[in-house]
Amino acid sequence: MALLEVHNVHAYYGNIHALKGISLTVQEGEIVSLIGGNGAGKTTTLRAISGLLPPRAGYITLQGEDLRRYKAHQLVSKGVAMVPEGRGVFARLTVEENLEMGAYHRSDRTGIAADMKRVYQLFPRLEERRRQLAGTMSGGEQQMLAMGRALMSRPSLLLLDEPSMGLAPVLVEAIFQTIKEINKAGTTILLVEQNAHMALQTAHRGYVLQTGEIVLEDSAHNLQQNPVVQKAYLGID
């Protein structure tokens, strides 16, 4: 059984039909990447999975359990964590308070403290700045904070929306390195990226979205070799 299954999901923003029957699966331990242009429905797919935009038709299961009866805030305790587009750190909370919010649904103090230590090991920069307001940090640091905060809920599935957006190339490398490390430590990852190149290098498998539909599905390796993908998303003629 796959960890995550998305079955023929349709989602709307008002009257705009944003997802037109998306189906995808993510196996335990994988990094799966969704690539596609602007407005293809990548972010919408993640919003549907995380409960922020409930699908109007179709359904989503996590370890076989239908997620339709849960609201967004209840999904965290089911093991879904999301790093939203634009990072979404709480600017007027300190770094440490942001991390505490990531563990909001938990009440095991020792476990939370241990996880905070782990996040600080993964991102030593955050420990240096733990009393600083998150809004005063650089984009890269905020991305680290957003990822660390998501890890604080001990997710089984981590949804990442455009982790490389607006970051310097050196930082992009570092972020993707961290994504691999997080995955090696046992967290399954569903990744949405404009930077198809980095996404396909990091992922095991990938899906290509176009105007709300999945047009291609293959291993990341094969997608990198696919002439259509090369032309449209990797900038190779």
Partner: peptide, 12 residues
């Protein structure tokens, strides 16, 4: 600050 992100943190 942000209701959607707060919900993603598990805040009702």
């Amino acid at each position: 600050e942000d209701k959607d992100v707060a919900a993603l943190m598990g805040i009702d």
